[in-house]
Design a protein around this nucleic acid. Structure first.
Lengths: 143, 143
DNA sequence: TTGCGTGCAAAGGTTTTGCATGGCA
DNA sequence: TGCCATGCAAAACCTTTGCACGCAA
């Protein structure tokens, strides 16, 4: 992934901290900058992008594309969650990410390999849709 | 979706034809322009983007983001396939799109609604991974 | 004839790069 | 001290917009 030596800096701590504080939902590069600016700990744009890339290649952060891909969003993925082993749901309404730890879903992979000769990559796959809370708010029946 | 009147033009025919000829895999806006240029029927960049948007809002074309979202790709979706009713697999190796028409997968939606209170939107969801052919080529065992 | 479609040029917004300076270990 | 990290400014990139002209119906 990334074997180069890496220094611990104030800026990186702040970026990572901001991502962790927002681990339930995605956040844009611009939003990270705004948050840090409000906290009176501004970080340069270049640094944000470069560190995000680093975190992505390490697997600590995932990049999402919402609204037809107009904007890139980033979200912290807890290493302890073993995210490569399960599916993820992302609500297009509120942006919340759900970790789908579930036996039924685990069988899905075997089914797809056996019947469709295809190996799903969980690190690249996200199921988009609408969560229960958002369905209630919009008054739409989920089924 | 799109109720405005719409003219049939040479350019649109060419763009659509190009997309249909490439319906098995995604293609970028730039590639569409290159193909049409090679065919000695060049179409302006603006026209390509504007017509793609139109096709997307009609549901005839889907937009994908590959390679970490650096480039937007487009792919024709046959209306007769009833794509909103099934899942799709996209191979990150060859770009091929597979329509997952399968009873087992149909049950998946009910499971996710019942057990996870989440309604998956098939028009926004793509399962990324590696297809059988690409797995053979790279010599990697799928399981 | 009407008004949608086209395409050039320019603008727009996000992300990346070059390079000199700063700071961790 | 040796590298890696930072951040400004500028570039690169893809996509959208303004506008005058063209063309389908």
């Amino acid at each position: 992934m990334d074997n180069s030596t890496s220094y611990k800096t104030k800026q990186r701590d702040q970026i990572l901290d901001c991502l962790i504080r927002n681990k339930d939902h995605h956040i844009t590069a611009d939003e990270i900058m705004s948050v840090l600016e409000r906290d009176n700990t501004p970080v340069g744009r270049t640094t944000v992008y470069r560190y995000l890339d680093k975190l992505i290649s390490q697997g600590s952060v995932r990049k999402f594309f919402i609204e037809g891909g107009k904007r890139a969003c980033y979200q912290y993925m807890d290493q302890n969650e073993a995210c490569s082993e399960h599916y993820h749901l992302k609500c297009v309404g509120c942006g919340q990410l759900f970790h789908l730890k579930c036996e039924y879903l685990d069988e899905l992979d075997s089914h797809i390999i056996d019947h469709h000769s295809f190996k799903v990559d969980h690190s690249k796959t996200v199921l988009y849709g609408c969560c229960g809370d958002c369905a209630k708010k919009t008054g739409r029946n989920q089924k």
